[in-house]
Amino acid sequence: MRIAFHGSSLLSAVWNGAATYYRGVIRALHARGHRVAFFEPRAFGRQERADIDPPGWCEVVVWEPDAPGLRAVAARAAEFDAVIKCSGVGVLDAEIQEAVWSAARPGALRLYWDVDAPATLAGLEADPSDPLRAWLPRLDLVLTYGGGDPVIGRYRALGAQDCVPVYNALDPETHHPAAPEPRFAAGLAFLGNRLPDREARVEEFFLRPAAMLPGRDFLLGGSGWEGKDLPGNVRLLGHVSTREHNAFNCTPLAVLNVSRESMAANGHSPATRVFEVAGAGACLITDAWEGLDAFLAPGREVLVARDGAEVAEALEGLTPGRAARIGAAARSRTLRDHTYERRAAEVEARLEAALAGRAVA
């Protein structure tokens, strides 16, 4: 099958939390024999700070976000058996979906892939004139980054024929155990961009434990934290390239995951970082959210905290031996149940079922 993705960026993770997700899914689809092209606009300096080269497993088309660029992208839509518009491109979102879905050839599948369902659904429910609402009944399928039954129900209520979560996962060729690096040494490390939907939770789950444990070293990576008032035992790194994530995960005693407020509220939305850390065999401490136990076993494969005090308590009671056992168990579980190979097989089955339904119709 020939599949077109229209998304934020495959080449760059700069202000683009979906990069690892896109790479894992598309690389696995390629391994299953599909030919995939990813169309990404030149925007936000992403391509200038790309952290991978154009890969052999996907055609990457970087286009200028103007009228001629959009016409050129739309002109190629008829080449594909499935045309996917992803959420959060960041520029010309409505124009891209209108152009590429309208230009798709008769019989081709039209899909929306939502990598931030809570934000998208909030916008759709608040604005009846949102162009995506008119498209939903005409699309073959909506795929989402996560969300479980609440997200599925809300999309169906808006007219979607079907909605299927495709959860984050592990690409074991990309994220795996690595040698520690002294510059990432810490008792607890957190990696995430500064976002309004997450900042208060980072303050609670990361900065509060740092203040409670002044004798421990804490490490903060990600964009946007410059100028933030930090405890003296928190070291700021700035953006960390995806090439360095394995060492970042393997060096500290533990790594923290903090969900965005909307993702935690919806539940069933494991962040990419959950599987990156597990794939590296590192010990993960995560904030609590509904559905977590469907992915990792609390206490054995992951440590779970309901607030900053419980993060501090978990860290104080954590020995290197126990951290290693938790990391090893998480890696084993993730390799068994949560790889992008498995996710790609799910996507393939959904696409084939949609095509079969088209043929019957």
Score class of each variant (00 low, 15 high):
280 A>R: 01
347 V>L: 14
345 A>T: 07
210 A>F: 05
344 A>V: 07
48 E>A: 15
86 C>M: 13
52 I>Q: 01
114 D>W: 00
110 R>M: 02
82 A>N: 10
106 P>K: 01
184 F>Q: 01
186 A>D: 08
61 V>F: 12
202 V>N: 08
302 V>P: 00
308 G>W: 05
298 P>R: 11
8 S>P: 11
286 T>Q: 00
53 D>T: 13
108 A>V: 04
229 D>E: 15
247 A>T: 03
170 L>R: 06
238 G>V: 06
129 S>R: 09
245 H>V: 15
92 L>H: 11
354 A>L: 11
252 P>W: 08
188 L>D: 03
330 A>I: 03
263 M>C: 15
266 N>C: 15
14 V>M: 10
332 S>E: 15
168 N>A: 15
139 L>H: 05
337 D>I: 05
93 D>T: 02
145 Y>T: 09
297 A>T: 14
160 A>N: 02
1 M>W: 05
322 R>P: 12
41 P>Q: 10
79 E>S: 13
110 R>K: 05
230 L>M: 09
254 A>G: 06
87 S>F: 01
2 R>E: 04
281 G>K: 06
298 P>S: 10
219 L>I: 11
332 S>V: 15
110 R>I: 00
127 D>I: 14
124 L>Y: 03
187 G>E: 10
138 R>H: 11
325 R>F: 10
238 G>P: 13
257 N>P: 00
302 V>S: 07
193 N>L: 12
148 G>L: 09
109 L>W: 03
53 D>S: 14
251 T>M: 05
264 A>P: 01
243 R>D: 14
234 V>D: 12
354 A>Y: 06
